[in-house]
């Protein structure tokens, strides 16, 4: 029963995610953290960070992580199957029937507006996550470094993840953390 709920919840996340892994965060917050309590906001951030620097699609990596936490290895597989299920159905329908789907004017208009909405939702998520996770000056500095560099330079997320993990350890050991 738990596995079915897991599958359906992640299918819901899959169908509601427009525009890639980061657009998934507001939906995951709602479904996984608020509704089912399967993970905390902090854990979600941890999984997202690890999902960035491990191979594969971030949405899938995050789903496997949460699924594993809820129901072990089987849970990991079930959550992943859930998150990819809507893609399979929707893409096959479009590929088979609506070959010029992305060129339809109404589709283009709808997606231009959805992008606006996704920006607003991500903005809200970032504010919420900030309140939960950025609690001292050192974390603000780390945020500023990654944010600033990633905006202007094409650096692989792996570099940031490795850098921040190391910085986290050093800042904690030297007692800078928490000030």
């Amino acid at each position: 029963m738990k596995l079915l709920t897991l599958f359906l919840s992640f299918a819901k996340v899959g169908v509601m995610t427009f525009g890639g892994g980061y657009a998934m965060i507001p939906i995951l917050e709602r479904e996984i953290v608020d509704k089912h309590g399967w993970a905390s906001s902090e854990e979600l951030m941890d999984y997202y960070a690890v999902g960035q620097c491990t191979p594969g699609v971030i949405a899938v990596n995050t789903a496997t992580f949460i699924g594993y936490k809820v129901g072990g290895g089987v849970g990991g597989v079930v959550a992943t199957m859930g998150v990819i299920f809507p893609s399979l159905i929707i893409i096959m329908l479009i590929a088979g029937i609506l070959t010029n789907f992305a060129e339809i004017p109404a589709v283009k208009s709808a997606f231009s507006a959805i992008r606006v909405c996704v920006c607003v939702l991500i903005f809200n998520s970032v504010l919420k996550l900030w309140k939960g996770a950025i609690k001292d000056k050192a974390a603000v500095v780390l945020f500023a470094i990654v944010f600033g560099i990633s905006l202007f330079f094409d650096v692989s997320p792996i570099v940031f993840v490795v850098f921040c993990a190391a910085a986290g350890i050093i800042l904690t050991r030297t007692g800078v953390r928490g000030k």
Binding site: E42, C119, I122, I134, S150, F160, R173
Partner: peptide, 18 residues
């Protein structure tokens, strides 16, 4: 300690993607 650093990283990457 590593995850303490990683959370700031995650939020920054989400913010910059947004």
């Amino acid at each position: 300690a590593a995850f303490y650093g990683l959370r700031a990283c995650s939020i920054a990457l989400i913010a910059s993607a947004g």
